[in-house]
Write a protein that binds this DNA or RNA. Structure first.
Length: 827
DNA sequence: CGAGCGTGTGAA
DNA sequence: TCACACGCTCGG
């Protein structure tokens, strides 16, 4: 038998299957999806079997055998292999990168070298070197790495021994992590016999007696460690009993359950409101017919989307299928997990980035081994290895965290639609502020109603008929004219004061971390820049350093201008740290929790701060966009956006969309319960449509305006985009490669017969090369080309060919090229 | 990507 | 004449 193997060497020229002989003894074990170790170019690497065959692609004598099989159960199923193929094509990445992205990183094995004493040379005891003795002690074989560590000076001798054949070398793939095993003690099988034996234990072995007596009274096996602790004894006592055959000790597989010891209160389905019921019925119908469908659930904040999700999942499980729920990383809080665990108990597997590698692996195995039927997780949970997928829910579908920034640069929404197609599953995209891509897909579908695309499910009312909180826009230019130069406008100041007096809570949003955004000399105009990136340094008050938010570079803050030596060097712009300081000045004794990347890097800290806030141990929750999402606290009655414009002027065609979404989301945090809420937005652009429409919670008005802008500028959803970024340490190299790439792209575009310009059904246009918006990051210059296209054009294919041609000299000095396919309209 | 090989260069 | 450095090719 032949196996087609994708080797784990992520490069353009090895991105194709290689054929291997399947050894006789593995014939029944190796199947598509198996993970194997194979000899490749003089070493052993990890690989994935993507197919098996009888006939090889190449001369059979060239074939090498598979060296080892790495798992009993193939980690990939055929549908995931197919999905990997699709990802690799669509997002322009090597197949192995796509496949690896679908698995927990624990399954990324590295080759390890072992050396053994050659069997026929075993009598060569003449070699009484201490390293040789060491190998013998280890049972005749040991890791080369540990030999190197213990006997650093023996390198020459060991090498010689291998060369002469006195030692044999073998390579094997070792996983980063394995199943955790715990030594566990089992109660005696025959209690009467054990009782009898108890009397036979000598009087001086009091501890042994105690242990045995305890174990006789025990129903379940308990971990050795726990036993030792409860009876304050030692392992030798227990071992002695085991040696006498009175107790059994065994390695037992242990799941690292991140939610162990936490009980979740079981919840029952709630009665749905009329609006919810209508939406639920449509999803349930789709589940019954088991055809691929996409729904866009447009529900305002607080409209009860989650309950609809839960009941849809329940229906899906009743049909004998499984479900995936994606939520943005940031809202994977215990509260969120609790809702799912509360309804579906231990059948829920939770996958997110704050889990340790081992925990993540164990949750994944729970799915693979069919012990879980619901997966709740961030982006990568879309790859949960279910066999009969019935339903995929993507909550807050507009969130940008569904797009992976590293290769493979996939968008979970697009992958979800593709997976649903494979399984005949339904996709439910939920949001209060749907992305324009999804919204137009739904609008087009409803117009044509041919069953393809996305069906729109509106839920315009809040549960309990709660009104949306009133939103006040404060024009900061007016404030300035009125003589207020502070960061808080008078209305926001008054609002905060009132909340403090009433003992209510406030949430403040500022999309800039650090203390100040830039440092400038008032005398000569010098600004502190990062020496490695073309970006201003941010001052951090606590550590008193200037830090680059792109590469992490840090330097001491200057007291005098490094350029003109003037002392008029000042900090400008406002970051979260500065707001915190200002709050303490204005309201002495105020309790502020600041949440940004600087305060939430520690594991569990995010959760800790939110719990504190929920227990009303703080008056104000101040943070970057992470405070905008999914929080639900009854005593929050004021929400303030300190500088709504921060995200409005970013060099991104989605800037207005992101601003609208952020403001709408954060506004939804206020007054969700008994106490009425209020929202204050400070801005220098009070008449901008992203802000005025957010003020009135008017999604439709925003979309109308934004779509007309997109149409004018020919941006998505009116076209598709591919952004190609080139980077290199040397500027001329980047410019050169950029020109060459753009030339090739234009040539292919022309050959594709779709000339630029206009809105004809087929077009492709190449823009650039131009310097990227941040022209240098980490000492690398950056240029970019953009490909805009519409209709039936294989733009990704054209890009792939052009990139391959430019990146040909594959030494490490060559220009790095990254291809970023913009999330596409679902159809 | 990385091992191995061929070519070329330099020092004895 | 040999040692090593560099770059290219190829891997099953």
């Amino acid at each position: 038998m032949i196996a087609r193997v994708i080797v784990d060497v992520p490069s353009r020229q090895t991105d194709r299957p290689f054929d291997y002989e399947v050894p006789e003894e593995l014939a029944g074990w190796v199947e598509p999806g198996s993970r194997v170790g194979v000899p490749f170019g003089g070493r052993v690497v990890q690989g994935f079997v993507i197919a098996t065959a009888e006939q090889a692609d190449v001369d059979r004598s060239k074939l090498k055998p598979i060296a080892e099989l790495l798992d009993h159960m193939p980690p990939l199923s055929p549908d995931l292999i197919e999905l990997g193929q699709w990802i690799s094509e669509k997002y322009c990445c090597p197949m192995t990168v796509a496949l690896q992205a679908m698995l927990p990183s624990a399954l990324k094995g590295k080759a390890e070298s072992y050396v053994a004493i050659a069997p026929d040379k075993a009598e060569a005891a003449l070699f009484e070197a201490d390293w040789m003795n060491y190998i013998r002690q280890q049972g005749g074989e040991t890791k080369l790495a540990s030999l190197q560590a213990k006997f650093p000076d023996a390198a020459r001798e060991v090498k010689a021994a291998i060369a002469e054949g006195r030692l044999t070398e073998r390579a094997a793939i070792r996983d980063r992590l394995s199943v955790r095993k715990v030594l566990t003690v089992f109660p005696p099988a025959d209690r009467e016999e054990a009782e009898l034996a108890l009397t036979a234990i000598p009087a001086r072995a009091a501890k042994q007696r105690e242990v045995l007596r305890y174990m006789i009274g025990q129903e379940d096996p308990i971990p050795l460690q726990a036993l030792i602790e409860t009876l304050s004894t030692t392992s030798s006592t227990v071992r002695a009993l085991a040696d006498k055959g009175l107790l059994v000790m065994q390695e037992v597989e242990q799941n690292r359950d991140p939610y162990a010891g936490r009980s979740f209160r079981r919840t029952e389905p709630l009665t749905l409101m009329e609006g919810q019921q209508k939406v639920y019925d449509q999803i349930a119908d789709a589940l019954d017919v088991a055809e691929p469908r996409v729904f866009l659930l447009h529900g305002v904040t607080g409209s009860g989307k989650t309950e609809v999700y839960l009941q849809a999942i329940e229906h899906c499980l009743d049909l004998g299928k499984q479900a995936i729920v994606l939520v943005p990383e940031i809202s994977l809080t215990p509260q969120m997990v609790e809702r799912f665990k509360g309804r579906f108990g231990h059948e829920v597997a939770v996958l997110h980035s704050r889990l340790s590698g081992g925990e993540r692996y164990d949750e994944w195995r729970k799915i693979r081994e069919k012990r879980a039927r619901v997966a709740v997780g961030a982006r990568s949970a879309i790859f949960a290895p279910f066999e009969r997928l019935g339903l995929i829910i993507i909550d807050e579908e507009h969130e940008s965290s569904y797009k992976q920034e590293e290769s493979p640069k996939y968008h979970a929404r697009d992958v979800a639609v593709r997976r649903a197609k494979q399984h005949g599953a339904a996709v439910v995209l939920g949001s209060a502020t749907p992305s324009l891509e999804s919204y137009t897909a739904a609008a087009l579908t409803n117009a044509s109603s041919d069953g393809r695309g996305a069906a729109l499910l509106p839920m315009p009312e809040r549960v309990g008929g709660k009104p949306m909180p009133p939103v006040t826009i404060v024009d900061m230019r007016e404030e300035l004219r009125g003589g207020n130069r502070a960061m808080f406008s008078r209305p926001l100041y008054e609002g905060l004061k009132l909340r403090l007096e009433r003992g209510e809570q406030s949430v403040l949003l500022l999309n800039r971390r650090g203390y100040s955004t830039f440092v400038m000399c008032r005398a000569c105009g010098y600004t502190a820049q990062c020496p490695h990136c073309d970006i201003a340094l941010t001052y951090h008050q606590k550590s008193r350093v200037l830090r680059c938010h792109y590469c992490g570079h840090a330097e001491g803050s200057p007291t005098a201008c490094p350029s003109c030596e003037s002392e008029h060097i000042r900090f400008f712009g406002t970051g979260t740290q500065r707001v915190e300081e200002e709050l303490s000045k204005l309201f002495p004794g105020i309790r502020v929790i600041r949440m940004d990347v600087d305060t939430t890097t520690e594991k569990g800290s995010h959760e800790k701060w939110l719990t504190m806030f929920g227990e009303r141990k703080a008056d104000v929750l101040l943070g970057t966009q992470m405070v905008a999402k999914g929080l639900d606290f009854p005593y929050v009655t004021l929400v303030g956006a300190i500088a709504a414009d921060t995200s409005l002027h970013l060099p991104d065609f989605r800037a207005a969309e992101k601003t609208f979404q952020l403001l709408t989301q954060v506004a939804g945090r206020a007054g969700r319960h008994r106490l009425p809420g209020e929202v204050i937005i400070q801005t220098y652009n009070p008449e901008h449509y992203a802000i005025t429409t957010a003020q009135h919670h008017d999604y439709d008005a925003f979309v109308k305006e934004e779509l007309s802008h997109r149409r004018q500028m020919a941006y998505p959803p009116y076209c598709r985009l591919i952004l190609i970024t080139l980077s290199h340490e040397q500027l001329p190299q980047v410019i050169n490669a950029g020109d060459k790439l753009a030339g090739l792209l234009r040539q292919s575009a022309e050959e594709a017969g779709a000339g630029g310009g206009g809105f004809n059904s087929r077009f492709i246009e190449v823009l650039g090369p131009v310097a990227s918006s941040i022209p240098r990051i980490k000492d690398r210059y950056r240029f970019q080309c953009m490909v805009k296209y519409r209709g039936n054009v294989d733009a990704v294919g054209i890009v792939r060919v052009a990139v391959a041609a430019v990146a040909r000299p594959q030494d490490k000095a060559s220009v790095q090229i990254s291809v970023d396919v913009d999330p596409q309209v679902i159809l």
